[in-house]
Write a protein that binds this DNA or RNA. Structure first.
Lengths: 190, 190
DNA sequence: TTGCTTTCTTACCATAGGGTAAGTTTTTCC
DNA sequence: GGAAAAACTTACCCTATGGTAAGAAAGCAA
């Protein structure tokens, strides 16, 4: 929690009052491995800030195959923003991959802070801009890199994440099958 | 221009003063087909709002192959946000696919409006949120759909865009070769 | 219109990655 | 610690998409 506050203060000047309000919305919690924080098809009204551990958001396609949109590690936010933005039911699930600590916020309340304390806006903007940049890079990587190159990049970008994730979590993030990832690993080991 | 102002006013209450300032930053211009507004490797300090026509942003990979990140049609913004956010030289180019009308803004100046008129923040947030949602959907589509399905979706999402674009523009957006797209079209025609 | 250039199509074969299923290893949990 | 479950690997063959190159069509310029 203190780290998050500190992070916010590094971006904006947070008044004592706004800080107090922000803290009143925050609900720190520990979540067990395997917990589902957001479930496909249900209403979404929470967003999570990860203080420790690793979570992922994923969707399930018509054949029952899972596709990972995001791994969230320390200092990332995770939720189903598509559902929140469009005011729809979740099309994504958010799953806890290892025992983690998160701070839960009610999405509407967290948005409300922007009305009450407009000084908070630049922080939110910072988060969103960073998010846009990382999504754009992901798309460009998907378009131009081979599966092996994407895997190498994943290892580089999420250095300690592999220990928390199953093989098929990573495969479903890279857009390949678990078996292909296994083959890639064999090749790399040589 | 009026449409953009109108759009802003539908999201936020824009004071007369802020509107005046906003207008002072806007530089409407007509651009010819084939113009390059942002060039890979150069400094980026402009963002463009499309009022008419069609543009695209793309990168060129190590083999000289182009990959389209975005088609921008009426009412979309386009630039190299990766470069702007990271304060780097452009890794993307922005090209005009048909004679178009755009409004040019200096990126820093446009950002400055947020400092001067914090009331503008929610509009910027709206743009960014919409952008995040559309990028996330694109990634999920890329992960779960076949080339044919992605093409169908493209036709649906960009209904009149095909007339402005070359075959290889669309192919490079879908993540396939021009030849594959050609084959897909033949199949669909049957 | 005529020719030149660019784009699109098509035929051929090549290859990255997918699917299945069996076997192996690792993890879980009692 | 040991049985059961889950995850991972491997061998086999399959399919979607890629690459090349040649030819056809469309766009453009004079």
């Amino acid at each position: 929690m203190e780290e998050l506050i500190h992070k916010i203060k590094s971006i904006i000047a947070l008044s004592a009052e706004a800080e107090k309000y922000f803290r009143s919305l925050a609900k720190p919690m520990n979540v067990a491995k395997g917990s589902i924080l957001i479930r496909e098809g249900q209403a979404v009204n929470k967003v999570y800030f990860v203080t420790d551990g690793c979570l992922r958001s994923y969707c399930t396609d018509k054949n029952g195959k899972e596709h990972t949109l995001l791994f969230a590690i320390k200092n990332w936010w995770i939720s189903d923003y598509i559902a929140i933005h469009n005011n729809e039911f979740a099309t994504l699930s958010v799953e806890c991959l290892t025992a983690s600590s998160v701070i839960e916020f009610n999405a509407k309340e967290l948005n409300g802070i922007l009305t009450r304390f407009p000084e908070y806006e630049p922080f939110q903007r910072h988060i969103l801009e960073r998010h846009v940049v990382s999504l754009q890079k992901r798309i460009l990587n998907q378009l131009q890199l081979s599966a092996t190159e994407r895997y190498d990049l994943f290892i580089e970008q999420y250095p300690h994440t592999e220990q928390y994730t199953r093989n098929y979590h990573i495969a479903s993030y890279l857009g390949i099958t678990q078996e292909s990832l296994s083959r890639i690993r064999v090749e790399k080991a040589k």
